[in-house]
Design a protein around this nucleic acid. Structure first.
Lengths: 156, 156
DNA sequence: CAGTATCCGGTGCGATACTG
DNA sequence: CAGTATCGCACCGGATACTG
């Protein structure tokens, strides 16, 4: 069997892109990774129209990327929040890799606005190819540094 | 400054997706990473229509992902081949990450068809988040294993 | 506030036919 | 073989208006 026999029918990349290939999916995920949970917050941060956001949120929920969980604040009516699933967190390296690639090759000259820091070592974190038994950074080990302030990733 | 101030205007992910977000770009890149260079080969492997492929190839060339270099085989007329650029190779971790995610979460039950092996250690390679000074695997250190046979990545 | 319904435009993509 | 030109559809995403 040769590599060229691996066509699109059993190509995981094509399958993955069918799920996350849409232009908004990964940015919505980025928001969710950084703790955004509510419809309005997604909308304000992304500047996306409510209908598109609604569509995307539903699609991503159906695809198992987000979990739509009801909650109720005191005396308020029931709401829903959207939490990234395990399946979504497994995309974290891809999202980070994409961000770093954009920083390097599509930057507008400014310094990259966001850095990831490993809380254990204090070192910057990168997405890379490593042997499978190399020590890796779990999402909960990573803080997101924007400019001068520090934001800790919400424990999930 | 808070993280929420990082909107789409300076979001590297959105910028990156504007370039590689199209459904075909990353699969074309995967082919290129594995040594595919010629129009006909891309087309046969991907099963994509010539017009779409033509469009994609040109777009990716303009975006600096592919280099269109002329060559001539003995007695034949001039042809062109498409070689992945440095900028494209920098996407390798993203492509691999996407593939692994697809393998894990969208598999059809069969074993993942493709494995990456580090030629130095013989260990499987994964895309992951690591401290920036961790030892990583360069593309030239990686062989692509399909089923039982071994294919060595072309030195680039 | 948290969405949904509707309309509408751009384009990514497929199929086919054609050219050097 | 290596593409380009044309057509057409389907879908994505934007804007707006509306509902509980």
């Amino acid at each position: 069997m040769e590599w060229t026999d691996v066509d699109l029918d059993n190509c995981s990349i094509a399958r993955a892109l069918a799920v996350v290939g849409s232009r908004w999916t990964l940015v919505v995920l980025r928001e969710a990774f950084n703790g955004v949970r509510r419809f309005e917050d997604f909308q304000r941060h992304l500047g996306v129209s409510p209908s598109v956001l609604s569509q995307r949120l539903r699609g991503m929920t159906q695809d198992g990327l987000l979990e739509r969980v009801p909650y109720r604040e005191d005396g308020d009516r029931e709401r829903h929040e959207y939490r990234p699933s395990e399946k979504a967190w497994d995309l974290y390296p891809v999202v980070v890799g994409l961000m770093q690639w954009g920083d390097r090759h599509l930057g507008d000259g400014d310094a990259p606005p966001v850095h990831l820091i490993d809380v254990n070592s204090g070192k910057p974190v990168i997405a890379a190819l490593v042997p499978h038994d190399a020590p890796t950074c779990a999402p909960s080990d990573i803080t997101v540094q924007v400019g001068d302030s520090l934001t800790i990733l919400p424990p999930e």
